[in-house]
């Protein structure tokens, strides 16, 4: 018997079932279809303003830095300012997300390269799919628009987040994702990112910048 058939029949023997019982199958179908939300976390239930404030507080609590701008047009200047403040070269790498494409990058002196990272970039910019207020978590989706390597290889990761995409909790974020990708459809990778990379593997002392970015900067577009 194949390993697959063997394992499944072992499971069924242990539980005294044969796998074709109607009620069991129906229970599973129903759960997958309905995807119940379970316990709701109250802190994510606030108004739009409260959600944004909670996201900012939680992201800072996870040691990200956050700046808010009024419109998409102000993003390149905000990023240029951040690089200057941190004595970083005026260079970024990014994907071709349409929201990033329409920003006035030419108004700044930023030198921009495109596509995935080869590990030599100091700074990269990705646009977030969403933010989750309850833990200050960024939600990034993979694709040429926002290459996954840009979230992990640069020393300084910068994420642009639209305030309207901040949900209260994870469940609201999944609803938003299902709306965008269809039920059961998933981007190749969804990255939840809560603060910069860290490790406490040496004597339980928390140190930033283990393998991923040493620093995570979030630019929130309010308009």
């Amino acid at each position: 018997m194949s390993a697959r058939a063997d394992i499944l029949s072992n499971i069924r023997r242990s539980m005294g079932v044969n796998g074709s019982e109607r009620p069991r199958v129906a229970t599973v179908e129903e759960r997958l279809e309905r995807a119940p939300r379970g316990v709701v976390v109250e802190r994510g239930r606030g108004s739009k303003e409260e959600r944004l404030a909670l996201f900012v507080a939680q992201a800072k609590g996870a040691l990200a830095t956050v700046v808010e701008v009024e419109s998409r047009a102000e993003v390149p200047a905000a990023i240029a300012a951040y690089l200057r403040e941190n004595n970083l070269p005026a260079r970024i790498r990014r994907g071709d997300d349409p929201r990033l494409e329409e920003m006035p990058w030419a108004d700044t002196a930023l030198e921009i390269s495109f596509g995935k990272s080869d590990g030599k970039d100091l700074t990269a910019v990705n646009h977030a799919f969403a933010g989750v207020a309850e833990t200050g978590t960024l939600v990034m989706t993979a694709g040429h628009e926002n290459p996954t390597t840009l979230n992990f290889l640069p020393d300084y990761a910068i994420a642009v987040l639209d305030a309207k995409d901040v949900t209260g909790d994870y469940e609201d974020m999944w609803s938003k994702l299902r709306f965008a990708y269809g039920k059961g459809g998933m981007p190749r990778v969804v990255n939840w990112i809560t603060g910069p990379s860290r490790s406490a593997d040496i004597e339980q002392t928390m140190l930033l910048g283990a393998h991923g970015p040493r620093s995570l900067h979030v630019v929130i577009v309010k308009g």
Partner: peptide, 23 residues
């Protein structure tokens, strides 16, 4: 670890897709 959430929680579904530049 006593964190509100770990830094990286990653949901992976299948290999690189048409148009992907990494993965």
């Amino acid at each position: 670890t006593g964190q509100e959430m770990s830094v990286y929680t990653t949901f992976s579904t299948g290999p690189r897709r048409p148009g992907d530049v990494d993965g």
